[in-house]
Nucleic acid binder design. Structure first.
Lengths: 229, 229
DNA sequence: ATGTCGTAAACTGTAGACAGTATGCGATTT
DNA sequence: AAATCGCATACTGTCTACAGTTTACGACAT
């Protein structure tokens, strides 16, 4: 017994490290990635490297064309809008279901993550590549509390890392942190009173609010990055 | 120029055929599928077969365990509930967005599909493995009319085939067809008047209604299939 | 000088062989 | 007889080599 978890395959490891490299910006958005390049970089053959790139595509972190190659996605403002719309739908539903099904223990964890004291079993056990901060912990916890496995996996497999890809480069506009905290409080309050409709609407409002903030950040970014020397 | 579309890879072809075989029931739910078996069946090497199985997993049609193998999913009633909840969220949002963005031409196509006269560009051009009937055409059209690429792909890549897997085995309860048609009419009416909130709610109501019907079918199926001789 | 054609290079797609791992059956022991 | 250990088997994971495709560069003709 070498670990509590089955030994990872090379493809698993390569995939995890490439995702991290992309999200952190080590491999920059829009850059082409060849199987050989990945294989050499991590000292494996083309097989696992190829598999990792396929998974990148499934995760929405890269696009592929047959017989041609893959490149890291480069999100436009329109892409971000699409992502936030999808997120609003999915997290809204997750929050509604959580209001119906959340356990007292899960509720406690959520309330703790509001104070930045989150316990993160998924990350600790290596089930996820996702390393949440306070906000991300919070959303993760609600997704789990929905007790809907498909929904949870859809969110963590396909949305959270891509959001992270962008969020890593973005910053909060002034006052957004406090605003977000208040919205989180409203969500937890709805969950505590087990009010599905209110919980869903609170989450959707939160994500729309986050989208408005992101739009601003994006405009600022693109307008300030051009005149840089 | 051999086709209007880039020549498919072997993995593409194998994947498409396996999906079809699973959905149709030729490969039955819950049965294990080995890479060798697929490779032999379609006369290719293990490479493309392996890739096809990976994609099955991404699509939610199979589950895999490292070093062990894959098996076709066998949906429980709980899995179906999860799927319908996810679908309610995503299609609800798709319908809301469609109400804001649908073109007159797209609206015409939808109205035609209500009469069973649908034009299906995606299927005709081979971009999808999905062969919709009237109902499925309808939902497909709304997903497309959302003009949200991520949402559209999430629905067609991850949800529709799995739903099809189940739907293929299910039947309509008496009166459900008429009920569904009325719900479709309500949705189109909301779209025509460009009313996002009403459109979303109409779609969500439709899917909840479909879920209630499915539950009944499921119970009937499982209770009648046991005493079969 | 410009456009077109052909060739070469780089990459992906596929095949086949080898290595490693999990499972199940059978032999052995208690 | 039951339980446990070990071996054989079947499968997945990985590597290497080859084939096919696409792009890009350069030579040639106009």
């Amino acid at each position: 017994m070498r670990d509590s978890v089955t030994r990872q395959t090379l493809a698993d490891q390569v995939f995890a490290r490439v995702v991290e490299a992309i999200v952190v910006g080590e491999i920059e958005a829009g850059s082409p990635i060849s199987e050989n390049e990945i294989a050499l970089r991590f000292g494996v053959s083309r097989g696992p490297a190829r598999e990792a790139i396929f998974r990148l595509e499934a995760k929405g972190l890269a696009t592929r064309v047959a017989h041609f190659g893959a490149r890291v996605v480069d999100l436009t403002l329109d892409d971000l809008r699409s992502l936030f719309e999808l997120r609003e739908a999915m997290e809204g539903m997750a929050c509604r279901l959580a209001a119906e099904r959340i356990t007292d223990a899960e509720l406690v964890v959520l309330e703790e993550s509001l104070r930045g004291h989150a316990v993160r079993p998924e990350v600790a056990s290596g089930q996820s590549y996702y390393q949440p901060g306070g906000d991300q912990d919070f959303h993760f916890g609600i997704a789990r509390a929905s007790h809907n496995q498909r929904l949870f996996r859809a969110l963590s497999d396909e949305l959270y890392d891509v959001m992270r890809l962008y969020r890593f480069r973005s910053s909060l506009t002034p006052g957004r942190a406090i605003e977000a905290r208040n919205e989180h409080r409203a969500i937890v309050e709805a969950l505590r009173s087990r009010d599905p409709a209110r919980a869903e609407e609170a989450m959707r409002a939160h994500i729309r609010s986050s989208w408005r903030n992101t739009q601003t950040t994006f405009r600022t970014q693109t307008s300030t990055s051009e005149p840089r020397i």
